[in-house]
Design a protein around this nucleic acid. Structure first.
Length: 217
DNA sequence: ATCCCGAGGG
DNA sequence: CCCTCTGGAT
């Protein structure tokens, strides 16, 4: 079994991107938000939780805490109650309040626009920082690698790594930088609708011919 | 490597 | 019962 050449993998990646763009012309971030602060809070809540469930709790959360200053002064118990159904609610409440306090203390109540400034904020790892940069500010500094992106990138053999940061480094040279944020949404949409974990619908998959992992239904 | 944690699907 | 859902901190 000869390993696929770099040129062949690059060409395959380009075709995958083309087909997914055609299949999901409306792919976008499905976390409801009106500004960077709301997206940051919603993304923190999205850990190990569906977007749909996050969207169930954020309206009340944002009504009670409309800005970082309000959330920075919140009581943990109150925030915990509002976000309980998203899971990990104690950690997430602590992160949300800590995040708001950091915005107020270090960034004039605004969400910063660089990876270096975002990463030290409580609850913000590289994945969350990439979501904010790419979707709130249109800055494609990296690629958001979540559970779907990681799973599909592996199945499509665009990487053999499992560490998200290594997956990200493998993906970056395979796709145009201006498409990085869109790429994540396309893989996430495809992962939810067709390449479902534990039940991939290879018979309905538009990139099945490009996928080394495809199976007969 | 392990913990945090709830909800839904199969 | 199992797995999965846009992870991060220790």
């Amino acid at each position: 079994m000869p390993r696929e050449s770099k040129a062949a993998r690059t060409a395959r990646a380009a075709e995958i991107l083309t087909r997914l763009k055609a299949e999901y012309p409306d792919a976008h971030c499905e976390l409801d938000h009106e500004n960077a602060y709301q997206l940051l809070a919603a993304t923190i809540l999205s850990a190990q939780c569906t977007d749909a469930r996050v969207n169930l709790v954020t309206p009340a959360l944002f009504r009670r805490y409309p800005d970082p200053a309000a959330l920075a002064a919140a009581s943990p118990a109150d925030v915990e109650e509002l976000i309980r159904s998203t899971g990990f609610f104690r950690n997430k409440a602590k992160s949300l309040i800590g995040m708001a306090q950091a915005l107020v203390a270090d960034h004039g109540g605004e969400v910063p626009r660089t990876m270096e400034a975002l990463r030290p904020i409580p609850g913000v790892g590289r994945k969350t920082a990439n979501v904010i940069l790419g979707n709130a500010f249109g800055i494609n500094e990296g690629i958001t690698v979540d559970t779907h992106v990681k799973r599909l990138a592996g199945l499509l053999r665009l990487t053999r790594e499992s560490d998200p940061e290594k997956v990200e480094r493998d993906l970056m040279p395979l796709f145009p930088q201006e498409d990085w944020a869109l790429l994540s949404h396309l893989l996430i949409w495809h992962g939810r609708r067709t390449c479902i974990a534990n039940r991939p619908r290879c018979g309905e998959c538009v990139v099945a011919e490009l996928c080394p992992s495809r199976r007969e239904a």
